[in-house]
């Protein structure tokens, strides 16, 4: 319990805290120790390898005039990549390859980020390749 005096606006903690206060305090201390231990483990184990990027196409759908290719950009490394450019190339017989690209601000470590590419031609009618083409350190 805390006692607040309205007059001088100061507070005085009561000297006999209830058991609930100690319980909450103890649980909190435990959680913080876990958090610190986690970070310490990361700090010691981490070797900061370069980002390892991977693309998984999750769906192809006609959206209005265009075909939308949905994909997830995964980063399986401990390092975050910034300004990741992803390029899709659609090759169809008898036509110029169609390219479209998108830039992700970040691909966080051990995380996946969703995005989409738009094509005029139907990706099902040709061969589609989607790959990351470059990144920068944040």
């Amino acid at each position: 319990m805390t006692i607040t005096s309205r007059k001088d606006h100061s507070h005085r903690e009561q000297q006999t805290p209830g058991p609930i206060e100690w319980l909450v305090g103890l649980v909190s201390a435990l959680l913080i120790v876990v958090l610190i231990a986690w970070m310490a483990r990361e700090a010691i184990m981490q070797e900061s390898p370069p980002p390892q990027l991977d693309i998984e196409i999750t769906g192809i759908e006609k959206a209005g005039r265009y075909f939308r290719v949905d994909f997830a950009l995964a980063n399986r490394s401990d390092a975050t990549a910034a300004a990741v450019r992803v390029e899709g190339v659609l090759r169809r017989e008898g036509a110029e390859p169609e390219r479209s690209d998108v830039t992700f601000d970040y691909a966080p470590a051990h995380s996946s980020t969703k995005g989409g590419l738009l094509f005029e031609g139907d990706p099902a009618a040709g061969t589609l390749t989607v790959r990351p083409t470059g990144f920068a350190e944040p």
């Binding site: 903690e13 805290p17 100690w22 909450v24 305090g25 103890l26 649980v27 909190s28 959680l31 913080i32």
Partner: peptide, 12 residues
């Protein structure tokens, strides 16, 4: 005492 009862729970 204050650290355990107020500050650490506050951080959580």
């Amino acid at each position: 005492h204050a650290l355990v009862r107020f500050t650490l729970p506050g951080y959580v």
